[in-house]
Simulated scan of single mutants.
Amino acid sequence: MDFDLPESALAVREGVQAIARKYDQDYWSRCDADKRWPEEVWRELVEGGWHSLAVPEEHGGAGQGLLELAVALETLAAGGAGGAASFMYLLTPAFGGLTIARHGTGEQKREFLPRIVAGEIETCFAITEPDAGSNAMNISTLARRDGDHFVVSGQKIWISGVERADFLVLVARTTPAAEARPRTSGFTVLLVDVKDAVAQGTLTYRPIPKLGTNTVASSMVFLDEVRVPAGRVLGEVGQGFAVLWDILNPERILAAASGVGFGELVLRVACDYARERAPFGRPIGANQAVAFPLAKVKAQVELARLMTYKAAWLWDRGRPCGSEANIAKLTAADAAWQAADRAFQAHGGMAYSLEYPVARMFRDARIAKNIPVAEELVLAHIAQHELGLPKSY
Protein backbone atom coordinates (compact mmCIF):
# COMPACT_ATOMS: atom_id res chain seq x y z
CA MET A 1 0.00 0.00 0.00
CA ASP A 2 1.24 3.47 -0.90
CA PHE A 3 -0.28 6.46 0.86
CA ASP A 4 1.79 9.04 -1.01
CA LEU A 5 -0.15 11.20 -3.42
CA PRO A 6 1.07 10.94 -7.03
CA GLU A 7 3.24 13.76 -8.34
CA SER A 8 0.33 15.00 -10.44
CA ALA A 9 -1.82 15.55 -7.35
CA LEU A 10 1.02 17.20 -5.42
CA ALA A 11 1.54 19.61 -8.32
CA VAL A 12 -2.19 20.39 -8.28
CA ARG A 13 -2.06 21.10 -4.55
CA GLU A 14 0.86 23.47 -5.00
CA GLY A 15 -0.72 25.29 -7.93
CA VAL A 16 -4.11 25.80 -6.29
CA GLN A 17 -2.48 26.85 -3.01
CA ALA A 18 -0.65 29.60 -4.87
CA ILE A 19 -4.01 31.00 -5.99
CA ALA A 20 -5.84 30.48 -2.71
CA ARG A 21 -3.30 32.33 -0.59
CA LYS A 22 -3.96 35.56 -2.55
CA TYR A 23 -7.52 35.79 -1.20
CA ASP A 24 -8.22 36.37 2.48
CA GLN A 25 -11.36 35.80 4.51
CA ASP A 26 -12.49 39.38 3.89
CA TYR A 27 -12.65 38.58 0.18
CA TRP A 28 -14.77 35.47 0.71
CA SER A 29 -17.02 37.28 3.18
CA ARG A 30 -17.60 40.07 0.65
CA CYS A 31 -18.47 37.60 -2.09
CA ASP A 32 -20.94 35.91 0.24
CA ALA A 33 -22.50 39.18 1.44
CA ASP A 34 -22.81 40.47 -2.12
CA LYS A 35 -24.11 37.09 -3.36
CA ARG A 36 -21.37 37.23 -5.97
CA TRP A 37 -19.53 34.44 -7.79
CA PRO A 38 -15.77 34.60 -6.94
CA GLU A 39 -14.96 35.67 -10.48
CA GLU A 40 -11.34 36.63 -9.75
CA VAL A 41 -10.52 33.21 -8.33
CA TRP A 42 -12.43 31.42 -11.10
CA ARG A 43 -10.49 33.32 -13.79
CA GLU A 44 -7.20 32.29 -12.19
CA LEU A 45 -8.29 28.65 -12.01
CA VAL A 46 -9.26 28.76 -15.71
CA GLU A 47 -6.09 30.52 -16.80
CA GLY A 48 -3.94 27.99 -14.94
CA GLY A 49 -5.92 25.02 -16.25
CA TRP A 50 -6.81 23.99 -12.68
CA HIS A 51 -10.49 23.66 -13.61
CA SER A 52 -9.90 21.29 -16.55
CA LEU A 53 -7.70 18.71 -14.85
CA ALA A 54 -9.94 15.81 -15.90
CA VAL A 55 -10.28 16.85 -19.54
CA PRO A 56 -8.20 14.64 -21.86
CA GLU A 57 -5.00 16.15 -23.23
CA GLU A 58 -6.17 15.85 -26.84
CA HIS A 59 -8.90 18.37 -26.00
CA GLY A 60 -6.59 20.78 -24.18
CA GLY A 61 -6.94 19.50 -20.61
CA ALA A 62 -4.45 17.98 -18.20
CA GLY A 63 -5.58 14.38 -18.77
CA GLN A 64 -5.76 13.65 -15.06
CA GLY A 65 -8.50 12.12 -12.93
CA LEU A 66 -11.02 12.55 -10.19
CA LEU A 67 -8.29 12.27 -7.54
CA GLU A 68 -6.60 15.40 -8.87
CA LEU A 69 -9.95 17.22 -9.01
CA ALA A 70 -10.62 16.19 -5.40
CA VAL A 71 -7.21 17.45 -4.27
CA ALA A 72 -7.77 20.75 -6.10
CA LEU A 73 -11.17 21.23 -4.46
CA GLU A 74 -9.88 20.26 -1.02
CA THR A 75 -6.95 22.67 -1.40
CA LEU A 76 -9.12 25.59 -2.49
CA ALA A 77 -11.55 25.00 0.38
CA ALA A 78 -8.75 24.71 2.94
CA GLY A 79 -7.01 27.75 1.49
CA GLY A 80 -9.91 30.03 2.38
CA ALA A 81 -12.84 29.36 0.05
CA GLY A 82 -14.60 26.94 2.38
CA GLY A 83 -18.01 25.93 1.08
CA ALA A 84 -17.73 28.17 -1.99
CA ALA A 85 -15.02 25.89 -3.38
CA SER A 86 -17.40 22.99 -3.82
CA PHE A 87 -19.46 24.71 -6.52
CA MET A 88 -16.35 25.99 -8.29
CA TYR A 89 -15.27 22.39 -8.88
CA LEU A 90 -18.64 20.69 -9.24
CA LEU A 91 -20.52 22.86 -11.73
CA THR A 92 -18.21 22.96 -14.74
CA PRO A 93 -15.13 20.82 -13.96
CA ALA A 94 -17.17 17.79 -12.82
CA PHE A 95 -20.71 18.06 -14.20
CA GLY A 96 -19.38 19.36 -17.51
CA GLY A 97 -15.77 18.38 -18.13
CA LEU A 98 -15.63 15.06 -16.32
CA THR A 99 -19.03 13.83 -17.55
CA ILE A 100 -18.54 14.76 -21.18
CA ALA A 101 -15.01 13.32 -21.18
CA ARG A 102 -16.40 10.06 -19.81
CA HIS A 103 -19.67 9.74 -21.75
CA GLY A 104 -19.63 12.17 -24.65
CA THR A 105 -19.41 11.11 -28.28
CA GLY A 106 -16.33 12.10 -30.25
CA GLU A 107 -18.29 14.99 -31.76
CA GLN A 108 -19.54 16.16 -28.35
CA LYS A 109 -16.03 16.06 -26.92
CA ARG A 110 -14.68 18.13 -29.80
CA GLU A 111 -17.53 20.62 -29.47
CA PHE A 112 -17.56 21.11 -25.72
CA LEU A 113 -14.29 20.16 -24.06
CA PRO A 114 -11.95 22.70 -25.71
CA ARG A 115 -14.47 25.45 -24.90
CA ILE A 116 -14.63 24.32 -21.26
CA VAL A 117 -10.82 24.37 -21.11
CA ALA A 118 -10.77 27.88 -22.57
CA GLY A 119 -13.35 29.09 -20.06
CA GLU A 120 -15.78 29.92 -22.85
CA ILE A 121 -18.67 27.82 -21.52
CA GLU A 122 -19.88 26.76 -18.09
CA THR A 123 -22.29 24.05 -17.05
CA CYS A 124 -24.57 22.99 -14.22
CA PHE A 125 -26.56 19.87 -13.34
CA ALA A 126 -30.31 19.34 -13.03
CA ILE A 127 -31.76 16.21 -11.48
CA THR A 128 -33.75 17.20 -8.37
CA GLU A 129 -37.49 17.89 -8.68
CA PRO A 130 -40.09 19.05 -6.16
CA ASP A 131 -41.46 15.49 -5.92
CA ALA A 132 -38.20 13.71 -6.69
CA GLY A 133 -35.49 14.70 -4.28
CA SER A 134 -33.41 11.79 -3.07
CA ASN A 135 -35.63 9.35 -4.99
CA ALA A 136 -34.54 9.81 -8.60
CA MET A 137 -36.98 7.11 -9.68
CA ASN A 138 -39.77 9.66 -9.27
CA ILE A 139 -38.42 12.09 -11.85
CA SER A 140 -41.27 13.25 -14.07
CA THR A 141 -39.55 15.74 -16.38
CA LEU A 142 -40.31 14.24 -19.78
CA ALA A 143 -38.33 14.40 -23.01
CA ARG A 144 -40.37 13.23 -26.00
CA ARG A 145 -38.88 12.61 -29.44
CA ASP A 146 -39.88 14.99 -32.21
CA GLY A 147 -37.90 14.24 -35.37
CA ASP A 148 -34.25 15.06 -34.80
CA HIS A 149 -34.99 16.81 -31.48
CA PHE A 150 -36.25 16.01 -28.01
CA VAL A 151 -38.87 18.31 -26.53
CA VAL A 152 -38.52 18.65 -22.78
CA SER A 153 -41.10 19.80 -20.23
CA GLY A 154 -40.95 19.66 -16.47
CA GLN A 155 -39.66 21.36 -13.37
CA LYS A 156 -36.41 21.15 -11.43
CA ILE A 157 -35.49 22.55 -8.02
CA TRP A 158 -32.27 23.45 -6.20
CA ILE A 159 -30.38 23.83 -9.45
CA SER A 160 -27.19 25.71 -8.57
CA GLY A 161 -25.41 27.87 -11.11
CA VAL A 162 -28.07 27.98 -13.83
CA GLU A 163 -27.91 31.78 -13.84
CA ARG A 164 -24.37 31.65 -15.28
CA ALA A 165 -24.46 28.31 -17.10
CA ASP A 166 -24.30 27.95 -20.86
CA PHE A 167 -25.39 24.30 -20.79
CA LEU A 168 -27.50 22.31 -18.38
CA VAL A 169 -26.70 18.61 -17.88
CA LEU A 170 -30.32 17.55 -17.54
CA VAL A 171 -31.71 14.22 -16.34
CA ALA A 172 -35.12 13.52 -17.89
CA ARG A 173 -37.32 10.57 -18.63
CA THR A 174 -37.88 9.42 -22.19
CA THR A 175 -40.08 6.68 -20.75
CA PRO A 176 -42.52 7.73 -18.00
CA ALA A 177 -41.83 6.11 -14.64
CA ALA A 178 -45.12 4.19 -14.70
CA GLU A 179 -44.11 2.49 -17.96
CA ALA A 180 -40.42 1.88 -17.27
CA ARG A 181 -39.38 -1.76 -16.79
CA PRO A 182 -37.12 -1.95 -14.87
CA ARG A 183 -37.62 1.35 -13.07
CA THR A 184 -34.01 2.30 -13.71
CA SER A 185 -34.61 2.31 -17.47
CA GLY A 186 -36.06 5.18 -19.45
CA PHE A 187 -33.69 7.88 -18.19
CA THR A 188 -31.88 10.09 -20.69
CA VAL A 189 -29.21 12.70 -20.00
CA LEU A 190 -29.33 15.78 -22.24
CA LEU A 191 -27.13 18.81 -22.81
CA VAL A 192 -29.55 21.74 -22.83
CA ASP A 193 -28.47 25.10 -24.26
CA VAL A 194 -29.59 27.37 -21.41
CA LYS A 195 -29.14 30.74 -23.08
CA ASP A 196 -30.93 29.66 -26.25
CA ALA A 197 -33.85 28.22 -24.27
CA VAL A 198 -34.08 31.39 -22.16
CA ALA A 199 -34.09 33.49 -25.35
CA GLN A 200 -36.87 31.28 -26.77
CA GLY A 201 -38.86 31.67 -23.56
CA THR A 202 -38.99 27.91 -22.99
CA LEU A 203 -36.71 27.88 -19.94
CA THR A 204 -37.14 30.17 -16.97
CA TYR A 205 -35.69 30.08 -13.46
CA ARG A 206 -36.25 31.73 -10.11
CA PRO A 207 -33.56 31.89 -7.39
CA ILE A 208 -34.49 30.41 -4.00
CA PRO A 209 -33.66 32.55 -0.95
CA LYS A 210 -31.31 30.43 1.16
CA LEU A 211 -29.34 30.41 4.38
CA GLY A 212 -25.80 30.17 3.04
CA THR A 213 -23.43 29.27 0.18
CA ASN A 214 -24.44 32.59 -1.31
CA THR A 215 -21.62 32.82 -3.85
CA VAL A 216 -23.85 30.85 -6.21
CA ALA A 217 -27.63 31.00 -6.62
CA SER A 218 -29.82 27.90 -6.39
CA SER A 219 -32.99 28.09 -8.43
CA MET A 220 -36.31 26.63 -9.43
CA VAL A 221 -36.09 25.81 -13.15
CA PHE A 222 -39.13 25.56 -15.41
CA LEU A 223 -38.88 23.79 -18.78
CA ASP A 224 -41.75 24.33 -21.20
CA GLU A 225 -41.26 22.57 -24.54
CA VAL A 226 -37.49 23.10 -24.60
CA ARG A 227 -36.09 21.75 -27.88
CA VAL A 228 -32.82 19.80 -27.61
CA PRO A 229 -31.04 18.33 -30.66
CA ALA A 230 -30.85 14.54 -30.52
CA GLY A 231 -27.10 14.85 -30.98
CA ARG A 232 -26.87 16.27 -27.48
CA VAL A 233 -27.77 13.09 -25.64
CA LEU A 234 -25.02 11.94 -23.27
CA GLY A 235 -24.80 8.16 -23.43
CA GLU A 236 -27.68 6.13 -24.82
CA VAL A 237 -31.32 7.19 -25.03
CA GLY A 238 -33.24 5.46 -22.25
CA GLN A 239 -30.03 4.15 -20.68
CA GLY A 240 -29.03 7.28 -18.81
CA PHE A 241 -28.97 5.62 -15.40
CA ALA A 242 -25.39 4.45 -16.00
CA VAL A 243 -24.39 8.02 -16.88
CA LEU A 244 -26.28 9.29 -13.85
CA TRP A 245 -24.26 7.20 -11.40
CA ASP A 246 -21.10 8.39 -13.09
CA ILE A 247 -22.25 11.88 -12.15
CA LEU A 248 -23.55 11.16 -8.64
CA ASN A 249 -20.57 9.18 -7.34
CA PRO A 250 -18.03 11.85 -8.37
CA GLU A 251 -20.37 14.49 -6.94
CA ARG A 252 -20.30 12.74 -3.56
CA ILE A 253 -16.55 12.27 -3.69
CA LEU A 254 -15.98 15.92 -4.52
CA ALA A 255 -18.46 16.96 -1.82
CA ALA A 256 -16.33 14.90 0.58
CA ALA A 257 -13.17 16.65 -0.62
CA SER A 258 -14.89 19.96 0.06
CA GLY A 259 -15.76 18.80 3.58
CA VAL A 260 -12.17 17.79 4.25
CA GLY A 261 -10.81 21.13 3.07
CA PHE A 262 -13.57 23.04 4.85
CA GLY A 263 -12.78 21.18 8.07
CA GLU A 264 -9.11 22.11 7.78
CA LEU A 265 -9.98 25.76 7.17
CA VAL A 266 -12.36 26.02 10.10
CA LEU A 267 -9.90 24.27 12.41
CA ARG A 268 -7.22 26.76 11.44
CA VAL A 269 -9.53 29.70 12.16
CA ALA A 270 -10.56 28.17 15.51
CA CYS A 271 -7.01 27.35 16.57
CA ASP A 272 -5.69 30.79 15.61
CA TYR A 273 -8.34 32.33 17.84
CA ALA A 274 -7.72 29.82 20.65
CA ARG A 275 -4.01 30.69 20.65
CA GLU A 276 -4.63 34.44 20.73
CA ARG A 277 -7.64 34.80 23.05
CA ALA A 278 -6.48 34.99 26.68
CA PRO A 279 -9.25 36.42 28.91
CA PHE A 280 -7.83 34.81 32.07
CA GLY A 281 -4.15 35.39 31.44
CA ARG A 282 -3.48 32.38 29.23
CA PRO A 283 -4.73 31.27 25.82
CA ILE A 284 -8.09 29.52 25.88
CA GLY A 285 -6.49 26.84 23.72
CA ALA A 286 -4.56 25.71 26.79
CA ASN A 287 -7.84 24.52 28.29
CA GLN A 288 -8.72 20.93 27.49
CA ALA A 289 -12.39 21.86 27.19
CA VAL A 290 -11.40 23.88 24.10
CA ALA A 291 -8.45 21.86 22.86
CA PHE A 292 -9.85 18.32 23.04
CA PRO A 293 -12.94 18.86 20.87
CA LEU A 294 -10.76 20.52 18.23
CA ALA A 295 -8.27 17.66 18.41
CA LYS A 296 -11.09 15.15 17.94
CA VAL A 297 -12.30 17.02 14.87
CA LYS A 298 -8.77 16.92 13.44
CA ALA A 299 -8.84 13.13 13.76
CA GLN A 300 -12.23 13.05 11.97
CA VAL A 301 -10.91 15.21 9.13
CA GLU A 302 -7.90 12.94 8.60
CA LEU A 303 -10.07 9.83 8.50
CA ALA A 304 -12.43 11.48 6.02
CA ARG A 305 -9.46 12.45 3.83
CA LEU A 306 -8.30 8.85 3.59
CA MET A 307 -11.72 7.61 2.47
CA THR A 308 -12.11 10.49 0.02
CA TYR A 309 -8.82 9.66 -1.67
CA LYS A 310 -9.67 5.96 -1.72
CA ALA A 311 -13.06 6.60 -3.35
CA ALA A 312 -11.51 8.87 -6.00
CA TRP A 313 -8.74 6.34 -6.64
CA LEU A 314 -11.31 3.59 -7.20
CA TRP A 315 -13.40 5.73 -9.55
CA ASP A 316 -10.37 6.64 -11.63
CA ARG A 317 -9.70 2.92 -12.12
CA GLY A 318 -13.25 2.12 -13.15
CA ARG A 319 -13.86 0.05 -10.04
CA PRO A 320 -17.05 0.03 -7.91
CA CYS A 321 -16.94 2.92 -5.44
CA GLY A 322 -20.54 3.56 -4.39
CA SER A 323 -20.06 2.61 -0.75
CA GLU A 324 -16.72 4.41 -0.52
CA ALA A 325 -18.19 7.56 -2.08
CA ASN A 326 -21.07 7.48 0.39
CA ILE A 327 -18.83 6.84 3.40
CA ALA A 328 -16.46 9.61 2.33
CA LYS A 329 -19.34 12.06 1.95
CA LEU A 330 -20.88 11.04 5.29
CA THR A 331 -17.68 11.36 7.32
CA ALA A 332 -16.38 14.50 5.63
CA ALA A 333 -19.68 16.37 5.96
CA ASP A 334 -19.87 15.50 9.64
CA ALA A 335 -16.23 16.48 10.20
CA ALA A 336 -16.83 19.88 8.57
CA TRP A 337 -19.96 20.44 10.63
CA GLN A 338 -18.25 19.41 13.89
CA ALA A 339 -15.35 21.72 13.06
CA ALA A 340 -17.72 24.64 12.45
CA ASP A 341 -19.69 23.90 15.61
CA ARG A 342 -16.57 23.70 17.79
CA ALA A 343 -15.09 26.81 16.17
CA PHE A 344 -18.33 28.64 16.90
CA GLN A 345 -18.15 27.54 20.54
CA ALA A 346 -14.46 28.45 20.86
CA HIS A 347 -15.20 31.99 19.68
CA GLY A 348 -17.77 32.49 22.44
CA GLY A 349 -20.06 35.47 21.93
CA MET A 350 -17.86 36.82 19.13
CA ALA A 351 -18.96 33.89 16.95
CA TYR A 352 -22.26 35.72 16.46
CA SER A 353 -20.51 38.76 15.01
CA LEU A 354 -20.29 39.00 11.24
CA GLU A 355 -16.87 40.62 11.74
CA TYR A 356 -15.55 37.09 12.19
CA PRO A 357 -15.82 34.42 9.48
CA VAL A 358 -17.10 31.68 11.81
CA ALA A 359 -20.75 32.72 11.47
CA ARG A 360 -20.56 32.28 7.69
CA MET A 361 -18.66 29.02 8.05
CA PHE A 362 -21.20 27.73 10.56
CA ARG A 363 -24.17 28.16 8.22
CA ASP A 364 -22.27 26.99 5.14
CA ALA A 365 -21.08 23.80 6.85
CA ARG A 366 -24.53 22.64 7.93
CA ILE A 367 -25.96 22.02 4.47
CA ALA A 368 -23.29 19.42 3.65
CA LYS A 369 -25.07 16.95 5.92
CA ASN A 370 -28.14 17.20 3.64
CA ILE A 371 -26.66 17.51 0.13
CA PRO A 372 -25.89 16.08 -2.35
CA VAL A 373 -27.50 13.20 -0.43
CA ALA A 374 -28.95 13.22 3.10
CA GLU A 375 -26.88 11.35 5.67
CA GLU A 376 -29.89 9.19 6.56
CA LEU A 377 -29.94 7.77 3.02
CA VAL A 378 -26.19 7.21 3.15
CA LEU A 379 -26.64 5.23 6.36
CA ALA A 380 -29.48 3.27 4.78
CA HIS A 381 -27.20 2.41 1.84
CA ILE A 382 -24.41 1.26 4.16
CA ALA A 383 -26.83 -0.79 6.27
CA GLN A 384 -28.24 -2.55 3.21
CA HIS A 385 -25.20 -2.98 0.99
CA GLU A 386 -22.39 -3.34 3.52
CA LEU A 387 -24.17 -4.95 6.47
CA GLY A 388 -26.72 -7.01 4.57
CA LEU A 389 -29.68 -5.58 6.47
CA PRO A 390 -33.16 -5.33 4.90
CA LYS A 391 -33.88 -2.36 2.70
CA SER A 392 -35.44 0.40 4.79
CA TYR A 393 -36.92 2.67 2.11
Rank of each mutant, 00 (worst) to 15 (best):
S258W: 08
E276P: 00
K310N: 03
G261R: 11
N287I: 00
V290R: 09
G261W: 13
V269G: 05
F280P: 02
D316C: 09
G261V: 05
C271K: 15
A270Q: 07
C271L: 13
L314V: 14
A286V: 00
F280T: 13
V301W: 06
M307G: 00
A299R: 13
E302Y: 03
A270C: 11
E302S: 06
R277Q: 13
P293T: 02
F280W: 06
L303F: 03
V269P: 04
G263C: 10
Q288E: 12
A291F: 15
A295K: 10
W313S: 10
V297C: 06
K310I: 15
P283T: 01
A286N: 06
E264M: 14
R268I: 03
T308H: 06
K298E: 12
V301T: 01
D316R: 02
V290Y: 09
V269Q: 14
R275E: 15
G259I: 01
S258I: 00
A289C: 08
Y309V: 15
S258Q: 14
A299Y: 06
L294F: 04
K310A: 01
L306R: 14
A257W: 13
A274N: 03
R305I: 10
E264W: 12
A299Q: 12
D272S: 12
A278V: 01
V266L: 07
P293D: 00
P293N: 00
K298Q: 13
P279L: 00
Q288K: 11
R305S: 03
E264F: 05
R268A: 15
A270M: 11
R275I: 10
R305A: 14
W315V: 08
K296H: 07
Y309D: 03
E264G: 08
R305W: 14
V290G: 09
G261D: 04
D316N: 03
Y309E: 13
D316E: 05
G261P: 05
R277P: 06
A278M: 13
G281V: 04
A312Y: 09
E276K: 04
